[in-house]
Amino acid sequence: MSTATYTVNGMTCGHCVSSVKEEVGEVAGVTGVEVDLASGLLTVESASPVDKDRIVAAVEAAGYEVAHQS
């Protein structure tokens, strides 16, 4: 199992969280998505590491920006 954490800018409400979860959840290989609105943290779980660019593209498709990856 692989876990990656990203900081997402621009989320302000529950709809924002839902949009990010939906888009990232559709990325091939992703098995779990957690989004914390208060901290802006996005945690992505997968069976094997997923390319960061695919996660960033999914976040951008939801209308937000990845500021940092941990």
Rank of each mutant, 00 (worst) to 15 (best):
C13Q: 05
C13F: 05
G14P: 09
G14F: 10
G14Q: 15
G14L: 09
H15F: 05
C16L: 01
C16V: 00
V17E: 08
V17Q: 03
S18H: 02
S18M: 06
S18C: 00
S19Y: 01
S19I: 01
S19H: 04
V20Q: 08
K21H: 04
K21T: 14
K21Q: 14
K21V: 08
E22W: 02
E22S: 11
E23T: 10
E23P: 00
E23R: 14
V24M: 07
V24G: 07
V24H: 04
E26T: 14
E26K: 15
E26V: 02
E26I: 00
V27S: 13
V27W: 07
V27I: 07
A28S: 15
G29Q: 09
V30L: 12
V30I: 12
V30E: 12
T31H: 12
T31L: 10
T31G: 10
T31V: 09
T31E: 14
G32Y: 06
G32S: 15
G32T: 07
G32M: 06
G32E: 15
V33Q: 04
E34I: 05
E34T: 14
E34K: 12
V35R: 02
V35W: 01
V35Q: 02
V35D: 05
D36V: 11
D36P: 03
D36F: 04
L37T: 03
L37Q: 02
A38P: 01
S39M: 08
S39I: 07
G40Y: 08
L41T: 11
L41G: 03
L42E: 08
L42K: 08
L42A: 11
L42C: 10
T43A: 12
T43H: 04
V44R: 05
E45C: 00
E45H: 05
E45R: 08
S46L: 12
A47S: 15
S48A: 14
P49T: 11
P49L: 07
P49K: 14
D51N: 06
D51P: 01
D51V: 10
K52N: 14
K52Y: 05
K52G: 04
K52C: 01
D53R: 12
R54D: 15
R54V: 07
I55C: 03
I55D: 04
I55E: 03
I55Y: 03
V56H: 02
V56T: 13
A57S: 13
A57E: 14
A57I: 03
A57L: 04
A57R: 07
A57C: 02
A57W: 07
A57D: 14
A57H: 04
A58Y: 01
V59M: 06
E60F: 05
E60K: 12
A61M: 00
A61V: 00
A61C: 01
A62D: 02
G63L: 12
Y64S: 05
Y64D: 09
Y64M: 09
Y64W: 08
Y64F: 15
E65W: 01
E65T: 13
V66A: 09
V66M: 09
V66C: 08
V66W: 13
